[in-house]
């Protein structure tokens, strides 16, 4: 496990004309190859911007982003990207779209993989006649047919019914397991991704708040319940006092006072606590840290 699928350093992006606000700022993280990563955050957090930068559709305003060890533009053939609005050529049929995918990705096109996903679609139907869910399926078929080393999927499951979601998630996971494909999936609904992803990237307000293996991130936090007392030296993410009892989600620094009950937070608790407390410093696990020397 040595490769790096995605690495950002000092990455920032601002859109012209939007009151000069930063959509993304000071982003630094690393995603190891082979990870299945959930990119979560509220609407407008910068998830789509981050994915578009990685896909080489946008040029960063500052900092760098490296994809599969090279600039995004040079990794074009080795990654696949599905945008949030699932753009497809409206005048082409389903079969025509897959044909275009094969034409534009020679040398890597996997017809079977594409057909497996697009199978239930009427192959003579024009793209403009497809429903939202069908378009998503076709867009994913194109992405999987490309047999990419990195899949960047922006809200891939949003338009799908639960059955199709379950099936396509299964296809994606099989892809990841079989070909060691790195997958980055964004969503503002954590439930869509929980259980499928082993890595997590929480983006909020244009910043990366949490990054790394899901298990390690959870293990780095604790829910403490007990008497109201000073919580130093622990980093407090969120704390609530009800009567004489205190409930706090902290990052333990050193041993925890045995007067408190210690429990592991759920992923959802962890994310919500961070979203409610924007001032809490960023936490990246060692594998997600950019300047960490990664042992070969």
């Amino acid at each position: 496990m040595t490769g790096t699928a995605l690495m950002a350093d000092g990455l920032g992006m601002r859109y012209r004309g939007r009151r000069g606000g930063w959509a993304l700022r000071d982003c630094a993280f690393r995603l190891p190859a082979g990870a299945v990563c959930a990119l979560v955050g509220p609407n407008g957090a910068g998830k789509s911007t981050l994915l578009a930068l990685a896909a080489g559709l946008l040029r960063p305003a500052e900092g760098t982003i490296r994809v599969l060890g090279s600039a995004p533009g040079e990794a074009r053939a080795r990654m696949a990207y599905v945008a949030q609005d699932k753009p497809l050529y409206p005048g082409l049929t389903v079969a025509g779209t897959l044909w275009a995918g094969a034409e534009l990705n020679p040398g890597s096109w996997d017809r079977d993989a594409a057909e497996r996903v697009a199978g239930p679609l009427p192959s003579d139907a024009k793209v403009r006649e497809l429903s939202g869910g069908q378009r998503t399926r076709l867009a994913l078929a194109l992405a999987l047919g490309k047999r990419a080393e990195l899949l960047l999927l922006d809200e891939p499951m949003a338009d799908l019914d639960p059955l199709a979601r379950h099936q396509l998630m299964g296809v994606l996971m099989a892809e990841a397991a079989e070909h060691r494909t790195t997958i980055v999936m964004s969503s503002h609904i954590l439930g869509e991704l929980e259980g499928a992803c082993d890595h997590l990237l929480l983006v909020d307000g244009g910043r990366v708040r949490l990054g790394g293996e899901t298990d390690d991130l959870i293990a780095a936090h604790a829910v403490l319940t007990g008497p109201v007392r000073d919580l130093t030296p622990h980093t407090v993410v969120e704390s609530r006092t009800t009567g004489r009892a205190l409930t706090a989600l902290v990052r333990p620094e050193g041993p925890v006072d045995p007067a408190w009950d210690r429990a592991e937070p759920s992923l959802e608790e962890l994310l919500l606590a961070h979203l409610r407390s924007p001032e809490v410093p960023t936490l990246l696990t060692p594998s997600a840290t950019v300047h960490e020397a990664v042992p070969a």
Binding site: G73, A83, P87, L88, G107, K146
Partner: peptide, 14 residues
Amino acid sequence: ESGTYKLSWTQSVS
């Protein structure tokens, strides 16, 4: 306008 450039530019074609 329709966003299909995102499709065109992320195939193996620059």
